[in-house]
Design a protein around this nucleic acid. Structure first.
Lengths: 118, 118
DNA sequence: CATAGTGTAATATGTGACTAGTACACTATG
DNA sequence: CATAGTGTACTAGTCACATATTACACTATG
C-alpha cells in the first residue's frame, strides 16, 4: 500500500487517527481483530516499531485490547466507544473555538462559512 | 513576561499565530512597528533566533516589512490584511471540515455542538 | 513438542525541527 | 566617526520521530 502521510504530524499519530476514524465510521467493528503489527507495517509501508507505538497508544486509550500471541482487538465495550465519540467531538469543537478566538473571528461569522462549504 | 507555550506546536509558530491574531483583532495596527527581535525575545522568554524566525515567516506572508537597522513593521497594505483574514478563515474552516470527515462526524452534528458551546 | 504466528523489548542509527549562543552587517543618531 | 540599536548568518546541541535489527515471550495449531 505505502500510504501517504502528511509531514506536519507524526506518522504514528496519523495512524491512530485513521483507526479511530474507521471505528467511529463503522468500517471497523467492535471486537474486530486488527492486522498484526508486521502485517500492518507492510500494508502501510512503515516500520514495525511505529505500528507497535500505534497499538500502544490505542491500548492506552482503552479502545483496543492486546492479547500476546493472538493479536490486537478492538474493545467490545460499546460504552467506551460511545465515550470516545463524545470526547473526540468535544475536543474537536473546543480546539476549533480556541483557534477562532485566537485569530479574532466570531463564532457566528465562522458558522456562516461552515454552512456555505462542502 | 515569559509566556506559556503549548508543547504540541513550535514556539515560533505560536508566536506567528499570536501576532496574526493581534493584527486581525486590531490590537496591532497597520504600519505599527513590532518590538525588536531582542526586546521581543526578552518579553516572551525565548531566544533571539526564534523571534527572528517569527519575523521571517511574517515577512514571507507579506504581512510585515523589515528594514535592517530600523525594525520590523506591519504592512500598510490594507488589502493584504483583508486577504489574510479571508485566507485564515477559510483555512480554519477547511481544516475543521477535514477533521470532521476523517472521524466520521457529520457537519450538522458538529454545528449543533458548536452552537451549544461557549 | 515443534513450529509459525502473535505482541514486546532493547539497542543503535539517521534525520529533521527547534532552540541557543555568538559573531557579523547595516542604519540612525549624536 | 563612534556608538547603540536594528536585523542576519553561522554553528552547534538537543530532542522527537522513524527506522533497522535482533532477541524474547506467549499462544494456537498440527
Amino acid at each position: 500500500m505505502t500510504m501517504d502521510f502528511s509531514r506536519d504530524k507524526p506518522i504514528y499519530s496519523q495512524l491512530v487517527d485513521r483507526i479511530c476514524g474507521d471505528i467511529l465510521k463503522g468500517k471497523l467493528e467492535l471486537g474486530d481483530r486488527l492486522p498484526s503489527v508486521r502485517e500492518y507495517a507492510v500494508e502501510t509501508g512503515v516500520n514495525v516499531n511505529t505500528v507497535q507505538r500505534v497499538y500502544k497508544e490505542l491500548e492506552a486509550m482503552n479502545i483496543t485490547e492486546t492479547k500476546r500471541g493472538q493479536g490486537t482487538f478492538i474493545t467490545s465495550n460499546e460504552e467506551r466507544i460511545e465515550l470516545l465519540r463524545e470526547e473526540m467531538k468535544n475536543q474537536l469543537a473546543e480546539n476549533f473555538l480556541t483557534s477562532i478566538e485566537a485569530l479574532g473571528f466570531s463564532k457566528e461569522e465562522m458558522l456562516v462559512v461552515l454552512k456555505n462549504k462542502a
